[in-house]
Design a protein around this nucleic acid. Structure first.
Length: 111
DNA sequence: ATTATGACTTCAC
DNA sequence: CGTGAAGCCATAA
């Protein structure tokens, strides 16, 4: 799969890379920022291909509940370890104080 | 071209 | 408040 052609994916990666350390965001938030609101699945698909982008911290992207929905896809519990490494506490596959660590691109980037 | 699946989200009961 | 089903866009077969 050639990647450079997927423009919308590229946007997802750019936003994901812009996520500050120790912060997290949700698929819907990125989707909303990109304008694909209602199709957070596509953001998830983008993350799936994120494996081709080592610079994309997919571990900072979780579902709306702050749950590491894709930790299994990420490569086991490696995702949780990365989050803890950034100062984010993860319990029961859920981010602790997710609301406080939430990073909304539509707000932080200034829609 | 059609059907099925997916790292999600939201409405409805 | 918890569980269930539908909606959404894109990729794969």
């Amino acid at each position: 799969m050639a990647i450079d052609k997927t423009s919308f994916f590229k946007d997802v990666y750019e936003v994901t890379k812009l996520i500050p350390k120790g912060k997290v965001t949700s698929y819907g938030a990125i989707g909303n920022y990109l304008g694909i609101k209602g199709s957070a699945r596509m953001v998830g698909w983008a993350m799936n291909q994120a494996g081709n982008y080592p610079d994309v911290p997919a571990h900072r992207v979780v579902n709306r509940n702050g749950v590491l929905s894709g930790k299994h896809h990420f490569g086991g519990d490696n995702m949780q370890r990365l989050l803890e490494n950034e100062g984010i506490k993860v319990v029961d596959d859920k981010i602790v104080d997710f609301k406080s660590k939430y990073w909304d691109p539509t707000v932080e980037l200034g829609l």
